[in-house]
Design a protein around this nucleic acid. Structure first.
Length: 424
RNA sequence: GCGGGCGUCGCCAAGUGGUUAAGGCAGCGGCUUGUGGCGCCGCUAUUCGGGGGUUCGAAUCCCCUCGCUCGCCCCA
């Protein structure tokens, strides 16, 4: 074994995979940009208190999953476990909210000290969008549509949009009372974990994976029944807009989500191909968070997408990464220099060139040229130097081995024209 | 944090107590000193994730540890 390896739950993204990442990133950038959403970048490190206040002291994320340390100035610092709190902080600190509604996206690594498993790492990557200062059901639908269209566009199938409304804070308090009084009659049917949650955060019993608990919950009061008239109307409205947009969804009254700040709309996009960690995208409305963190009252909604989970779903599709147009076969002192010169010229003309620096025999170099899948081999050796020329051969499987074209070395324009891939 | 499975070359693996740890892919070199896709030949793990123990003898058995993986918890 090697002396050094990545820390547990930390993963290298290797050259064979970066193409996939870049595709997703590019596509995301396009989607967001078309929707008038601008990028924001915030530090990976924030004061610990931001996350405690923002995400909620009672949550698992804050309670046991944060990477914290004390710096040389005795400040408690934390690697961000999610993006929303940082973005909210930034938007307040920089006064962006006084410039009208903000539509922002962010991306990058997040850190959570959890036990790794399929689709879960300690350093993972999220892509998120936040809308600030927009309160209508229409803005909820727009945000959801951005996520949905993006995921569809990368070619994912088997996705389900799950939708719920958590109502206002008062709605939830009412529901909480009803739910607790129902469950208290059946505590003996609850598992260990649910018993604890009953005291700490009873709503979270709703998404328990325990079958017996779920059976019991089928008879429990639903959150929908506890919603105020306004909340109900709002939720109805959202559903109607989504129908009009032809975005299919499923109502899941047990969808609560783990972070404290959600209210009204909560949603998740799940995949049937991911095992236990099925959520590809999760989000919801958080109308009180900005104020809670010291900003002006600002209705807000956002979502986050787990990049690694997208990568898993995309992993059957293979991408040919970085195939050169030209493989430059060269041998001999002067020829090697000339080849480097030529490579720069071709690259300047936007042609991908792989330059063989091995100095090995022409036979060997051609073998590698083939393997590189390049379309063309350009040959420069002592012979060519003497005649002031270069030779170009097609590496296409069907082409005749013997065919080669001779170009004058100084005839750069023609060489470039010849070797240039067709624009599509 | 709790449970199950696993860990032999860069990758995929055979080997389950007994002389030098199969094989395939990839890599490198040669057959072929200046010309590719095929083929053939050679080279590439003193060592089986790491450490300790049992044994005349361990990749194979035991203990500890690290990592991966699947599930719980939780979440993207």
């Amino acid at each position: 074994m090697t002396d050094f390896q990545t820390l547990r739950g930390m993963v290298d993204i290797l050259p064979s995979e970066t193409e996939r990442w870049q595709r997703i990133e590019t596509l995301a950038r396009n989607h967001f940009s078309l929707a008038g959403i601008d990028e924001i970048r915030t530090p990976l490190l924030e004061g610990t208190e931001l996350f405690k206040r923002g995400i909620g002291e009672g949550t698992d994320v804050v309670g046991k999953e944060m990477y914290c340390f004390v710096d040389r100035g005795d400040r408690s610092c934390t690697l961000r476990p999610e993006g929303t709190a940082s973005v909210v902080r930034s938007v307040i600190q920089n006064g962006l909210l006084s410039q009208g509604p903000q539509r922002l996206w962010y991306g990058g690594p997040m850190f959570r000290y959890e036990r790794p498993q399929a689709g879960r790492q300690r350093q993972f990557h999220q892509l998120g969008v936040e809308f600030f200062g927009l309160s209508s059901a229409r803005s909820d639908a727009e945000l959801i549509s951005v996520a949905w269209d993006f995921l569809k566009d990368i070619g994912l199938n088997g996705l389900t949009l799950q939708l719920n409304s958590l109502g206002t804070l008062e709605d939830r308090i009412h529901y909480r009372i009803k739910l607790v009084s129902f469950l208290e009659e059946f505590t003996e049917l609850l598992d260990e974990n649910s018993k604890k949650q009953l005291i700490k955060n009873p709503l979270r019993i709703l998404d328990s994976k325990n079958n017996d608990v779920q059976k019991l919950l089928d008879k429990a009061p639903t959150i929908g029944d506890s919603l105020s008239k306004e909340s109900k109307e709002r939720f109805c409205q959202l559903q109607q807009i989504l129908k009009r947009l032809e975005i299919p969804f499923v109502i899941n009254q047990k969808l609560v989500r783990g972070l404290d700040y959600y209210c009204q709309t909560a949603f998740e996009i799940t995949s049937d191909q991911l095992g236990a960690q099925a959520t590809v995208c999760g989000g919801g409305r958080y109308d009180d968070l900005v104020e809670q963190l010291g900003g002006p009252p600002t209705p807000s909604i956002g979502f986050a997408i787990g990049m690694e989970r997208l990568i898993i779903l995309l992993s059957e599709k293979t991408f040919d990464s970085n195939i050169p147009n030209v493989y430059l076969v060269n041998k001999g002192k002067e020829a090697e220099l000339e080849a480097l010169f030529l490579a720069r010229n071709l690259r300047a003309a936007n042609i991908k060139v792989e330059l063989d620096n091995s100095g090995s025999s022409f036979g060997k170099q051609f073998k590698r040229a083939n393997k590189s899948k390049a379309s063309w081999a350009i040959v420069i050796g002592d012979e060519e130097i003497i005649n002031g020329e270069i030779k170009i051969k097609s590496l296409d499987k069907l082409s005749n081995k013997k065919d080669e074209l001779v170009f004058n070395m100084s005839d750069m324009q023609n060489i470039i024209q010849f070797v240039k891939p067709f624009d599509h």
